[in-house]
Write a protein that binds this DNA or RNA. Structure first.
Length: 508
RNA sequence: GGCAGCGUAGCUCAGUUGGUGAGAGCGCCGGAUUCAUAACCCGGAGGUCGGCAGUUCAAAUCUGCCCGCUGCUACCA
C-alpha cells in the first residue's frame, strides 16, 4: 500500500497582488510535495485563496463591483503565479467554492452539536464608515471640532463602543487538551521556538473566541442563525478539510500545514481546538516558515522595494529563483534576497557547481567516446567518492524528512564538491592520452555521481533537473528515489551536451 | 513589563556534557591546471567569539550585570 501524504499551504488573502512571500511559501511547499512524490508517496497538495471577510467586501465596494466578481479577478494572479513557478498543486481551493461553504456549515454544526457554540455579545470600538472593529491600541488620538480629544480609527473615521450579537466558540475549554497535545507531540509545531510560544500562550489561559459577525455579510452564513456570517478564520482553516475531500475526506488528516510564522497561532491553537470539538483528527504537523525580505527590509511602496515575484522569475528563471530561496534561506528562519545575492548564489551553486560538473564530464564523453556512456569501474578515489556520496545522500534524506530544506541542499552541494574533487584528482583529460579505459571508468563514475545529485535536486528545480537527466541518459521511469541505485546502462547513447545553467554575467 | 531566543571571519552561519593553536560555505587574494560555463582543484589572508566582571588549572562554551537585535505576550496612556 502506497504511503499517502497530504500537504497544504496557507491560503492567500487576495486583496492585493501576490508578493514574494506567497511565492516563497508556494515554492517551499512544492519542493516538499515533490520530494514526497519522488520518495514514493501518493501526494495531495492543496493551495488556494481565502476570499471572504470584511476587507474583501470593502475592497470590492471601493472598486464598485460585487465581492464575488472582485475575488474572481484578484484570485487569478495567484493561480497564474503558481503555474508560472511550477507549483504542482492538486487543487487550488477558493473559499467561495460551493463545496467549501457547505463544509464550513457542516463543521459548524458539529462544533455546535458538541455544545461548544453559544450566543453572546461582541464588544469593541466600531467604525460605521469602515464597517470594522478596532482594538483600543489601534485607535489614534485626535480632536473634534470643539477641540475636545477624541479617538478615531486608523483611517481617521469616528468610532463608537458597540455591542453586537455574536456566536462564541468555547476555546477556553481546550487549553488543557492543547497543552496535552503539545506535550504528547512536540513535533506538532515547528520550529520548536514556535511551539514554545504557543505553549506559553495557551498556558496563559484562553478566552472564548467570537466566531460570527453580523456587521457584514460577505462570508459563509452560520447555520440556523440569520444575519450571522462565520469568522473568517474558521472559514479559512476549514479549507484544509474541503481540500481533503470533505469533512470525512479520504486525505484527512493532513500530514503538514506549511504556513507563515505570522499565522502559527491560528493553526496551532484555534485549528486543533475546532477539530477536537468537532471530533475530527488533527493534522500531524504545522510548520511556520520565516519571511523573505528584500535586502533585509519589508517591502513597502514608500521604500520603493516592492518586487513582483513573477517578474523576478522571468528575469532569473524559475529554477534559479527556486534554488536561491530554498538554498540561501534557512527554512523556518527569515531570509533576505537581492539581485546580487541571487546571482552570486546561483552562479556558485548552479553554473560553477552542478552545471559545470555535468558539462565537463559530458563533454569529454561526447568528444572522446562518441557520446556513448562507458561503464563505471575502479580507480583511485572511486571508493572514497562512493562513501562520501552515500553519507551525504543519507544526510539529504534526514534533512528533507526533518523539513530542513536548506540542509538538504547543503548535502547536495557537498556531493558536488566531492565529485568535482574526484574528477580533478583523477584528471581524465590526462588519462585520455595515456589510458583511455581508465578515463572511461572515471567519466562513468563521475556521471553516475552527477546522476545521483540531479535526482536529489528534482524537487527544487524540476525543469532544469529534467533537462540534465535527459542529457545523462536517465530513463523517465528511473527518476524517482527508488531508482537511486539504478545506474544508467553502459553503451547508452547520450545526446550532445548543452549547458543548463549558464553563468550569469552582469552584461545580461 | 514578563517569557523565550539571539549577538562567532566582509556576508550567511556550525561550534556535543567548558580542555589540542576557533571552523564551514560564499566573497576576496595567490598558486596550479586546461576536461569544463575565466569554471574546477590546491593554498592563503581575515575574527577583542557584543561589552564588563566573575567561577575554574582551563570558557565562544558556566554565573551576574550591561548594550544591541528578534519573537511571543501583558499593561499603561
Amino acid at each position: 500500500m502506497t504511503k499517502r501524504y497530504y500537504i497544504t499551504t496557507a491560503i492567500a488573502y487576495p486583496n492585493g497582488r501576490p508578493h514574494m512571500g506567497h511565492a516563497y511559501e508556494a515554492i517551499a511547499t512544492d519542493a516538499i510535495a515533490r520530494f514526497k512524490r519522488l520518495d514514493g508517496h501518493d501526494v495531495r497538495f492543496l493551495t488556494g485563496t481565502d476570499e471572504h471577510g470584511l476587507k474583501i467586501a470593502q475592497a470590492a465596494r471601493a472598486a464598485g463591483v460585487e465581492p464575488r466578481d472582485y475575488v474572481n479577478g484578484t484570485s487569478q494572479p495567484f493561480i497564474d503565479l503558481d503555474r508560472q513557478l511550477g507549483i504542482s498543486f492538486d487543487r487550488f481551493i477558493r473559499t467561495t467554492d460551493d463545496d467549501h461553504k457547505a463544509l464550513c456549515q457542516e463543521l459548524w454544526r458539529r462544533i455546535a452539536a458538541k455544545g461548544d457554540m453559544y450566543l453572546g455579545r461582541y464588544e469593541g470600538w466600531y467604525s460605521v464608515r469602515d464597517e470594522a472593529y478596532y482594538d483600543d491600541a489601534e485607535l489614534v488620538a485626535a480632536e473634534d471640532a470643539q477641540g475636545q480629544p477624541v479617538k478615531l480609527s486608523p483611517q481617521g473615521t469616528p468610532v463608537e463602543w458597540t455591542i453586537e450579537e455574536s456566536w462564541f466558540f468555547k476555546l477556553s475549554a481546550y487549553a488543557q487538551p492543547l497543552l496535552d497535545l503539545y506535550a504528547a507531540n512536540p513535533d506538532f509545531v515547528a520550529p520548536v521556538s514556535r511551539l514554545n510560544e504557543m505553549r506559553a500562550f495557551v498556558a496563559g489561559g484562553l478566552s472564548d473566541l467570537s466566531v460570527s459577525r453580523t456587521s457584514f455579510d460577505w462570508g459563509v452564513p452560520v447555520p440556523d442563525a440569520p444575519g450571522h456570517v462565520m469568522y473568517v478564520w474558521l472559514d479559512a482553516l476549514a479549507n484544509y478539510l474541503t481540500g481533503a475531500g470533505g469533512i470525512d475526506g479520504e486525505w484527512w488528516p493532513a500530514d503538514l500545514h506549511v504556513i507563515g510564522k505570522d499565522v502559527v497561532r491560528f493553526h496551532a491553537v484555534y485549528w486543533p481546538a475546532f477539530l477536537m470539538s468537532a471530533g475530527i483528527a488533527l493534522p500531524k504537523k504545522v510548520f511556520g516558515h520565516g519571511f523573505v525580505l528584500n535586502r533585509g527590509e519589508k517591502m513597502s511602496k514608500s521604500v520603493g522595494n516592492v518586487v513582483d515575484p513573477g517578474d523576478m522569475a522571468d528575469r532569473f528563471g524559475v529554477d534559479r529563483l527556486r534554488w536561491f530561496l530554498l538554498r540561501e534561506v534557512a527554512f523556518g528562519e527569515d531570509g533576505s534576497y537581492s539581485d546580487e545575492a541571487i546571482i552570486e548564489r546561483t552562479n556558485a551553486d548552479l553554473a560553477n557547481g552542478i552545471g559545470n560538473l555535468a558539462q565537463r564530464a559530458l563533454s569529454m564523453v561526447a568528444k572522446n567516446l562518441g557520446g556513448v556512456l562507458p561503464a563505471p569501474g575502479p580507480y583511485d578515489g572511486v571508493e572514497a567518492l562512493s562513501d562520501s556520496i552515500t553519507a551525504l545522500t543519507e544526510a539529504y534524506f534526514a534533512a528533507m524528512n526533518g523539513l530542513q530544506l536548506h540542509r538538504g541542499l547543503e548535502a547536495v552541494m557537498g556531493m558536488v564538491s566531492a565529485t568535482n574533487g574526484f574528477f580533478a584528482e583523477a584528471a581524465p583529460w590526462k588519462l585520455a592520452k595515456t589510458d583511455t579505459d581508465a578515463m572511461a571508468r572515471v567519466l562513468a563514475v563521475t556521471l553516475d555521481a552527477t546522476r545521483r545529485i540531479v535526482l536529489l535536486v528534482q524537487p527544487f528545480m524540476p525543469d532544469s533537473a529534467t533537462a540534465l537527466l535527459d542529457q545523462l541518459g536517465v530513463a523517465a521511469e528511473a527518476r524517482c528515489f527508488g531508482a537511486l541505485d539504478t545506474v544508467v546502462a553502459a553503451g547508452t547513447q547520450l545526446p550532445a551536451p548543452t549547458g543548463v545553467f549558464p553563468r550569469w554575467s552582469e552584461a545580461a
